[in-house]
Design a protein around this nucleic acid. Structure first.
Lengths: 197, 197, 197, 197
DNA sequence: AATGAATGAGTGTTCATTCAT
DNA sequence: TATGAATGAACACTCATTCAT
């Protein structure tokens, strides 16, 4: 088992899945891109499905590494911004991976790893929201809806950035947090005619 | 050409695409669900791809009908809430359609209709944001990022609701708008230690 | 049973078979050309194969009418020229039919009617050749080969004429007969060692 | 890519096309005859159409090799006889190919290669005829009609020979040339009013 | 006599996977 | 460890034919 060959295949698969999507990607494309023979592929991966899962697992691992628990002894905002920045950086460093992951593909068999991860993140966010509400920092709200909205927002923004050349991820992260927080933050003032909501 | 048969096929296809995704959906599944013969399918639709596009076109049409331009002579908030409520209602009435549409599928040939529509909506939102900024109602921000985030939020929330039985769409719409507005709304007060951003 | 509808279908089928060939011709093409409904076709013809056979039968009948036995009491050459002229005229009047018939199609089931007819004509020609040889008018030769060659020549010439606008069939018929009778060689001298043949 | 497998497929296709004709031939027949799996066929040929074209190209190549330009410094008759003999030999050695080629099939897409070749040969013959006329060796005539007739004659004779076991191709070639050159008429006397032609 | 919606057996083609070398 | 020829199940699509109206 050569680690290099495995690497070549993984890199090729990321590229191909990203460009064509899982179903339009063919083993032929992957091995051509990797420059190995057909049989070699099956020496390293049991099936087309397996190499996808391998890739998804890698992504989840990397993302988990980059999302760090917020330590309330320090300014939480800075930490959230840093988390989002790290996620954005990863997405833009590995655009192929981001494209694969963010193409929600309904086949639950295939993308369960990703779905589960997002589920986890959603829960994490919801928990944070609840904590914030309990602490009186965050307004009362449907935490489930809010959590979904926050994550969906980040996802969509990433998709939007994948085709941009140069992105100031720090600024985008701050924009997002600023947007998110000022929205959920228990503000003082009333908002125009919006008091009726 | 019988309108009923066409309807049966469309309904069946929506169900099957929704449950299995486009690529795992087979003509056999569709015609079995519709209860017609194989040849009949091709009497009404040129190909598997075409019936998908037909469905997507229908969705876009329906959504465009439900999203009404905001008339600034009246309270814009109420109108935005109503728009989002109508979209949520449609998604929940036609959950199959929503599932099909919200599965971002990388094949651009297939989903271009949807992508184009979302592009349009994004632009619409961006324009509104800019107008709001010009009017001094909305804070300065990266309108592109914000628009993406808003739409992504709504999308993700819809996905989250598709498995819930009973949903109070009015409430969810209000929550979403409340969240979105208080975020982008040019508030008076400062926000905790957040002034540094 | 309306004779007109039957006629419309036959005419349409001739056109379509001629243009597309039997296998590429579809019932749809025929009924569209004829301007009748699908079911109507099967009111008049049992199958696609049957309408072809009907057409072929018609051709054979017409050709048999136009090829008249040579009456040796009169100048046989004139009669042969007249026969060929009548065949050429028919082919050019009904070019669609000629095209159908002269596309030798290997499916023996389908074109047996035509093959049988040509077989008959070949035999007729062979018999005439033998009679001519017996009478000392025609040189000794392999009558089978000669008969085939003669008929093949006429067939190919017809195919060649089908795309010409104006054809002087009388002249072509005379050319063909003249050629058949005397060859292309300018009488007189022997050529090289060819005297031995 | 194994040359043997490709050969097996080509041989099988020749047999099947020859026996059933292109349209009635199925991939199943070809692979069963060749003794390979379905997928293997498509490893070597893009489609059913392509294998036919491959075969036709082969035929044209072989025929071009066997038809040699007539060198006027030597006896042209002998060379023509030799040419025809070589063509007849090929047809009888590869009867399947001959059957495929001589089944004029109207689909121009498919048989254009062959039609083009025959067109070429016709032109070649016409040119030769014109040269002969210019040299005073050949009688004035419609060279187009004559060329067609000559080629048609040879074609039909070949078709007639395909079912015969033992054929003396040399003799047949001589008969054909002799016929072409001198006609069937036993030289000498004029016949009836035919002198006028 | 005519219609045209519906049928379904049939067929070319694809592509993930295997296995002998 | 690598190769690539071979496999065959799977699937989209076609089109002659039927039949209820």
């Amino acid at each position: 088992m050569s680690v290099q060959t495995r690497g070549k295949l993984l890199r090729a698969a990321k590229k191909v899945f990203s460009e064509k999507g899982y179903y339009n990607a063919q083993i032929s494309h992957i091995i051509d891109t990797a420059g190995v023979a057909r049989g070699t592929f099956y020496l390293y991966f049991k099936s087309k499905e397996e190499i996808l899962k391998e890739i998804l697992k890698e992504v989840v691992k990397e993302l988990k590494d980059r999302i760090k628990e917020v330590d309330l002894r320090y300014d939480p905002i800075d930490q959230i911004v840093a988390n989002i920045k790290r996620v954005l950086d990863f997405a833009l460093e590995e655009r192929d991976l981001a494209r694969i992951v963010l193409q929600r593909n309904c086949d639950p068999k295939l993308f369960s790893i990703i779905e589960d991860f997002f589920e986890e993140v959603t829960l994490m966010v919801e928990t944070s929201l609840k904590k914030g509400i309990a602490l009186g920092l965050i307004r009362e709200c449907d935490t489930y809806v809010l959590a979904k909205a926050l994550i969906g927002g980040v996802k969509e923004v990433i998709v939007g950035l994948l085709d941009k050349e140069e992105v100031d991820t720090e600024k985008v992260a701050k924009d997002l947090v600023s947007f998110g927080l000022r929205g959920i933050w228990k503000g003082g003032g009333s908002y125009g005619g919006f008091g009726s909501i």
